[in-house]
């Protein structure tokens, strides 16, 4: 009986030890290095979810590469929605701070992106809830950068930074 108890205690101890290693390491890895997420909605067509509603892409989100809030024009990033903090949105970075951008349906025709902000747009104009609706977003809301499409397997690919030529900023920030 005593042996039985000792066995149980040892088992629980080992379990707790493993638990306190595995859970924090996993959470930290998912928070800091990379995680995966399913893309919903049609706002990034044709880059993501080209098939419409039947299949939704699963992308790899890289947190590590944006730890200093360094993004390029054309990157696909995920951010916390400024309108609904419980939701994450995935958009393409169009302009960085200091750029002057011609908007599509914003209340102002031309916008200079303020300091610490970026201008994001979905690839599917008109079907995307993006900076044309809520204006420039603060870099602090940045969550991760989408680097690869993982699923479905036939669409496995890298997502290179790609800025549509007609959406180039009118005036880039002087460096």
């Amino acid at each position: 009986m005593a042996q039985m108890q000792g066995f149980g205690r040892r088992y629980i101890k080992a379990f707790l030890k493993g638990f306190f290693v595995a859970v924090p390491v996993t959470v930290t890895f998912l928070d800091r290095v990379a995680c995966i997420a399913r893309v919903e909605g049609s706002s990034m067509q044709p880059s993501l979810n080209p098939g419409g509603k039947q299949v939704s892409d699963i992308v790899l989100l890289n947190h590590w590469s944006i730890r200093n809030y360094e993004v390029q024009r054309g990157d696909i990033v995920s951010l916390v929605s400024p309108r609904n903090p419980e939701q994450k949105i995935i958009k393409r970075v169009i302009a960085l701070e200091g750029d002057i951008i011609k908007t599509i349906s914003y209340k102002k025709r031309y916008v200079k992106v303020p300091d610490g902000h970026i201008w994001v747009e979905g690839d599917h104009h008109g079907h995307s809830f993006d900076s044309n609706a809520f204006g420039p977003v603060s870099l602090g809301l940045l969550h991760a950068r989408a680097t690869h499409i993982l699923w479905p397997p036939e669409r496995w690919q890298k997502l290179p930074p790609k800025l549509p030529p007609e959406r180039q900023p009118l005036q880039k920030e002087q460096v």
Partner: peptide, 19 residues
């Protein structure tokens, strides 16, 4: 848990400088 109320003091990222 989204239970911030009016009158609370909060720490937030600076909107113009995320660092």
């Amino acid at each position: 848990f989204y239970s911030i109320q009016k009158g609370d003091i909060v720490v937030a990222k600076n909107p113009t400088d995320p660092k």
